[in-house]
């Protein structure tokens, strides 16, 4: 999960084998140059892919903003400030995604509220409390938690959690913000745990030992010393978990109820919300290609893409910060 940034320094000293003749030298240099550029081109595919994704999503989103009937500014204003999403209305379609963005935030923030404390504590357990053997058992467990397909979680949310919430807690609807958040928190936890554990382990042994030597208990050491020291890595963990939650589609589509509203009162998680991902997944399949509605869904995708891109840059920044003191 971590982004490794170190370079292979040691191999540099042995780049050339014994030099024989001029031709050998030339051909091997040429060959190595060729290989290097070939590999570079291959590697560049990733860059190209990112560019392509941006280009194609923007290309399909652009007609939405550049439609002749309304000025782009009006469109933008409506897009981000209106809560009314009626893309299929024949006479007066409305494309406001404020409520949809809010829905994404509702489920994301709520899931983080559950996942971050639990994940952090679990990371502490794995890095500082568990024995080697326990860790060997726990790691695959967490990996499995991460590997279970989101659609399977979605089925679980719809068929098991939703009826349970309705029956035992008495919510009017079982597919709501809380249901989606609960499942999302489980899905975000493995990411948070593994990145946070890396961050905690990256804090040197000396620091812990110094703290213990001063008579601090484990709780004090962890809470006052290690966690503050690892704060940037932990922030990165939170952000990566957030990305997972924001970008998750199937679970929220199946479990969040898909009502285009901002819950009122605002803390009422028993109400249905609709997220950006669910809107795209739910509507794109049925919308005719080339219509404004079609393009508006790409516009939502673009918002999502830009948002996760920024989060990603932020997490990278924090991970870099985390790595610096280590060297």
């Amino acid at each position: 999960m971590t982004t490794a940034g170190s370079q292979s320094d040691a191999a540099v000293q042995f780049t050339r084998p014994l030099r024989l003749t001029f031709r050998d030298d030339l051909s091997s240099t040429l060959l190595s140059w060729l290989v290097k550029s070939f590999l570079f081109v291959v590697t560049f595919c990733s860059v190209a892919a990112v560019l392509l994704i941006f280009v194609f999503v923007i290309r399909q989103a652009a007609p939405f903003f550049a439609e002749s009937r309304v000025s782009p500014l009006e469109r933008l204003t409506e897009f981000f400030t209106s809560r009314r999403w009626f893309p299929e209305h024949q006479a007066h379609p409305e494309y406001g995604i404020l409520a949809i963005i809010a829905g994404s935030f509702y489920v994301t923030i709520t899931s983080l509220l559950i996942a971050v404390p639990t994940g952090l504590l679990a990371a502490v357990f794995l890095s500082d409390i568990a024995s080697f053997r326990t860790r060997q058992i726990c790691k695959p467990l967490i990996e499995i938690l991460a590997a279970i397909p989101s659609v399977a979680y979605g089925v679980f949310a719809v068929m098991v959690v939703a009826p349970w919430l309705q029956k035992n807690i008495g919510f009017p609807t079982g597919t709501n913000a809380l249901n989606a958040s609960l499942i999302l928190s489980v899905m975000a936890m493995p990411t948070i745990i593994s990145v946070a554990e890396d961050a905690l382990s990256a804090v040197g042994r000396e620091i812990r030992e110094a703290s213990y030597a001063l008579g601090a208990t484990r709780a004090e050491t962890m809470l006052r010393i290690v966690i503050p020291a690892a704060h940037s890595g932990i922030l990165a963990a939170v952000i990566l978990g957030m990305m997972r939650a924001v970008g998750e589609t199937m679970v929220v589509w199946m479990a969040s109820g898909n009502a285009t509203q901002i819950p009122s009162p605002w803390w009422d998680l028993s109400q249905s919300v609709r997220t950006m991902t669910a809107t795209i997944a739910g509507e794109l399949g049925e919308v005719p290609q080339g219509t404004t509605h079609f393009h508006s869904l790409f516009a939502i995708g673009l918002v999502l893409l830009i948002f996760t891109f920024c989060l990603n840059l932020l997490s990278e920044h924090f991970i870099m910060q985390m790595k610096k003191p280590k060297r």
Partner: peptide
């Protein structure tokens, strides 16, 4: 390149669907 790979990893799956 690294940033792009990380971005690729972070792109929501539904955006892959869009793409």
């Amino acid at each position: 390149i690294r940033t792009c790979i990380n971005t690729l990893a972070g792109v929501p799956s539904i955006v892959y669907g869009l793409f």
